[in-house]
């Protein structure tokens, strides 16, 4: 249960001004599990390109995830309705899509 307690404390610290309910905590935990499990499974798709790459990527991913817990709150903060963040991610995505597709298509 220590993970749950850590999580609860983290959220309480973060949103101490507002009242917390079970719904928020259960939602945050569910979202956390979904994000972690689906990211790891998605990384497995790389095995169609190279098995070694998959291993490296998964190890890096696990390290990143462990060092960034809890993910869901951070993701939530990144995806609020502010135009600055949306615009930033839009331009970044444009760059990533164009360069990745251009260089990996050959």
């Amino acid at each position: 249960m220590s993970y749950y307690d850590d999580f609860l404390n983290f959220i309480k610290e973060r949103y101490s001004k507002k009242h917390m309910t079970n719904e928020n905590v259960s939602g945050a935990i569910a979202s956390e599990l979904i994000v972690i499990s689906s990211l790891l499974i998605t990384a497995l798709l790389l095995r169609h390109i190279s098995v070694l790459l998959t291993g490296i990527v998964i190890i890096i991913l696990i390290m990143l995830i462990v060092s960034n817990l809890p993910l869901s709150i951070k993701l939530f903060d990144e995806q609020d309705d502010s135009l600055d963040k949306m615009m930033f991610y839009t331009v970044i995505t444009l760059g990533i899509i164009v360069s990745l597709i251009y260089w990996s298509g050959f």
């Binding site: 939602g27 979202s31 979904i34 689906s38 990211l39 939530f76 995806q79």
Partner: peptide, 11 residues
């Protein structure tokens, strides 16, 4: 992933 994980956290 992003859509559903965000949906879970909304009130």
């Amino acid at each position: 992933i992003l859509g559903v994980s965000m949906a879970v956290m909304q009130t």
